[in-house]
Design a protein around this nucleic acid. Structure first.
Lengths: 341, 341
DNA sequence: ATGACAAATGATAGCGCAATCATTTGCCTT
DNA sequence: AAGGCAAATGATTGCGCTATCATTTGTCAT
């Protein structure tokens, strides 16, 4: 039955529904949260009142009373980077399906901003937190630990995680890329990198080590910038490296954007890839396998890593015993751009 | 298997801080929310207690008591599409800087899921909502309007927006692309599209209209799928269109992923772009200007649109009188891939 | 001084909901 | 038919904070 009602702006509360349905407030609460505890007759009666009034529960009152927020905080360094949006998607899909809300913050690659943002997240009483890397300030780590909630640090393997950890070894990946290029017969191997965050630095460190082990390391083949990464920056860095340093016959790019920039520019410069120059990227974005020549890159299960982080959180919240560390690994996708010289 | 709760895990509340600082609870509240109303001496005293105890305010209690959430709800169709993550980034940057939290939900392109998710958002008492398009269910539009908060519908221009609206005309953009291709001398012009959401359908409709106006429309040149868009799908659709329909000399791809797939595949098939085939994408992602040949595409200010949506929300919340409609426009970036035949 | 008034601080009362425990109802057992 | 018990429903209380109003303190002109 429809009531002729004025467009009263007063918020509908549990009590309003209870009165309309002729029951007590707690019964309405049960219909919403534990419907199996209410008889079918009453349940329908209450549901009808809810629908008629357009009642929407106040999550703040609910969370305050029950001390449960159903919120999980997620801190990522950037929304501009497909790496993190893919991870976020994995996290979101799993947590959303489990009935959790995801509260995401962007730390802009800054530990100080991260601390501020994590304080904000904690004020939402999240039931768990998923954060990026291990580069937090001391104060930040301290408040995280005092929150006494499950915490996942993701994207890289940490020697001393705060709690749980999912990632892979960037150092080893960098090392392996260098080995792959050396095996291809390339001898003067360069590196270009933008936005050198802790993980990119580890890749570079592993890469350097491998070249040093082979006696092929040369400092003037390394070209980096702190600017955000992009295809355009890849073009620039590539040109700078090629003009300033002669004889470079292979380049490891710290991500696929840079590598694509280098590839597209080398096409324009009529440099033959891979005969005259090998190119290797990182992350293996979709374009890498379709460009011509196809681009060698390091595949990383970004979405899967997000899924795993979320699953670890859920397991912990559900009291399941789990392994606190997950190494997701990586895989060098060897393609045309690093074919033999 | 619950762990015994140690007393050290007890949450620190306002009261604890007040006692530690030797003041009343409301004074602590003021130090946090209206510090200018507290004398400097007390303020320092309280701040010290806050820091020592590691106090973090409970946002739920605060929101419940003050009826202010500082939350803005955002509903986007997908986190997998750079279009929406770019818009989200614009929204996030502006709202974050203004002290608002962004609660994002992913509707998976489904109006039914959107309704469910928007209910969830509304239970967080958002102070405003930013949603995508005008494709909501009746029920959803109804609860949105009854929420009596500012609402922005974004991504496309609507004939009857619920409240505020920021976007551009997809129909006109599709029309203009067809005109551009016709002007290039192309006569048998096809279309490939994936994930044909309402906006992609409008682009197709405008495109068709232009071809019909020119007497060049042919139904067997239109190839679409409901699968999510990707470079890989672009490759597939392109191959299907080229093998099933002969003589196609230009293709409008409903986004740049598809266009890149078509471009890369045509390189492999030794089809000369643009001499034998023109390609035009949509969205103008970064790769489009760097590939060889560079890809004609329709530039859309995604980040700017997010910024604009957020600014409209803030203006409204701050009581500023503003225009409720914002046409962000678009621009066809004419590049090599649609050069003369 | 003495009031007048502003600034600083405090006491009280909810915000809307769910935990907890109390009460009622319905149904089975003997 | 009476007792016993589980299921269904309700009354009360408090989660942690802020709005509101009350009170105290400080400042200044007269």
């Amino acid at each position: 039955m429809k009531m002729a009602k004025k467009s009263s702006e007063k918020k509908i509360t549990l009590i309003d529904v209870a009165i309309a349905a002729g029951v007590s407030a707690i019964t309405v609460s049960r219909v919403i949260n534990q419907p199996e505890k209410v008889s079918e007759a009453l349940r329908e009666q209450v549901q009808k009142a809810i629908d008629t009034l357009g009642y929407i529960p106040n999550q703040y009152a609910s969370s305050l009373a029950s001390a449960k927020s159903r919120v999980i905080g997620v801190a990522i360094p950037s929304l501009m980077n497909i790496v993190f949006t893919d991870v976020l998607r994995g996290i979101y899909e799993v947590l959303d399906a489990a009935g959790y809300k995801v509260l995401m913050v962007d730390t802009h690659y800054s530990p100080l901003e991260e601390e501020k943002m994590i304080r904000t997240l904690l004020s939402q009483s999240p039931e768990a937190m998923i954060i990026t890397g291990g580069d937090q300030t001391r104060a930040c780590q301290s408040i995280l630990q005092r929150a006494h909630i499950p915490i996942v640090q993701m994207m890289e393997l940490l020697s001393q995680p705060l709690d749980m950890n999912v990632g892979f070894s960037h150092w080893q990946a960098g090392y392996d890329v260098a080995v792959h290029l050396l095996e291809g017969g390339y001898t003067r191997i360069g590196f270009i990198g933008a936005r050198m965050d802790p993980r990119a630095q580890q890749r570079l460190a592993g890469f350097k080590q491998a070249l040093e082990d082979a006696g092929k390391y040369s400092n003037d083949c390394i070209w980096t910038t702190d600017k955000p990464s992009s295809i355009g920056i890849g073009v620039e860095l590539f040109k700078e490296l090629m003009t300033s340093t002669k004889g470079v016959d292979a380049i490891f790019c710290t991500n696929d954007d840079l590598a694509l920039g280098a590839l597209f520019e080398s096409q324009r410069m009529k440099i033959n890839v891979p005969k005259d120059l090998a190119l290797c990227g990182f992350n293996d974005i979709e374009a890498s396998q379709y460009v011509n020549p196809s681009l060698t890159s390091v595949y990383v299960g970004r979405y899967d890593m997000g899924v795993k982080a979320a699953e670890m959180v859920l397991d912990r919240l559900n009291g399941n015993v789990i392994n606190n560390i997950a190494d997701m690994g990586y895989e060098i996708k060897k393609r045309q751009s690093t074919g033999q010289k």
